[in-house]
Design a protein around this nucleic acid. Structure first.
Lengths: 129, 129
DNA sequence: ATCTGCGGTTACGTTGAGGTAACAGGTTAC
DNA sequence: GTAACCTGTTACCTCAACGTAACCGCAGAT
């Protein structure tokens, strides 16, 4: 395999648009949700607590367009559509679940750091306890 | 290690704010840039091509607040400030560099998928109606 | 001394992401 | 029949992220 000329650190490189798509909280949560298998729209919406229908629809469309997620619409009534990770999308599970687990594992450290930072930079007013 | 009660899939869980911070294109690129070692503000700005001074300053401040990046200001003239990954930040290098490499490695697949998607969904010409 | 240049930061205006709520359309209940 | 309901999508409006450009403070040049 040749070394590709693509470089996300170059502003005009197309790979940066791809990085922007995958380095995104909604993308991360949707991919994490789909890790356990294919899901319907409503199921993803319930799995990714707090996501609005619009954002979910938009993000899924972008992910489908980029070949990360597959969309299968069944012509029945009421309408049913199932989403799944493509092989390409499955290759993202590792890094993205790692980010999710990192956020959960280190939130206490992060919050402690935030408290120390705020204490140091802001005059002591609220909190103090 | 006990299993933490934190869960990024729950909208109100504090870990989600942390996920939002790290699942971000600017964060990813800055961490990638700092992977090779500590850098000054201007050096990061040159490394992360196209980032504006404001966004770089804001993102670095947030990363410092979260304990991911350390900031060392030298009291000399002209002013000099160096940024480095903390141990916590170093634990992000793996997943974030993986995302960067993914973007570079799969951009051709992604672009092909986009082209196919656009071809399929958009008619050749705009149907004037 | 004043002028110029650079590193880091901040004020302001614009754009685009995201939330709200209504919609399409078929199926069931009446 | 039609009225209510369910799934996925879309129109509209708000607000925060982002880029532009000016700013601040001092060193070195003139």
């Amino acid at each position: 395999m040749e070394q590709p000329p693509w470089n996300v650190m170059v502003a005009t490189c197309p790979s940066r648009t791809s990085l922007a798509r995958i380095a995104n909280k909604w993308t991360a949560m949707i991919v994490i949700a789909l890790t356990s298998g294919r899901l319907r729209f409503g199921e993803i919406r319930r799995a990714v607590d707090g996501i609005s229908g619009k954002v979910l629809a938009d993000t899924l469309r972008d992910l489908e367009r980029d070949g990360i997620v597959s969309r299968t619409a069944y012509d029945e009534m009421p309408p049913r559509v199932e989403y799944d990770l493509t092989p390409l999308g499955r290759s993202l599970r590792g890094p993205l679940t790692a980010l999710g687990q990192w956020a959960e594992a280190h939130i206490e450290e992060v919050e402690a750091s935030r408290a120390a930072y705020d204490e140091k930079t802001m005059p002591e007013e609220i909190s103090t306890r």
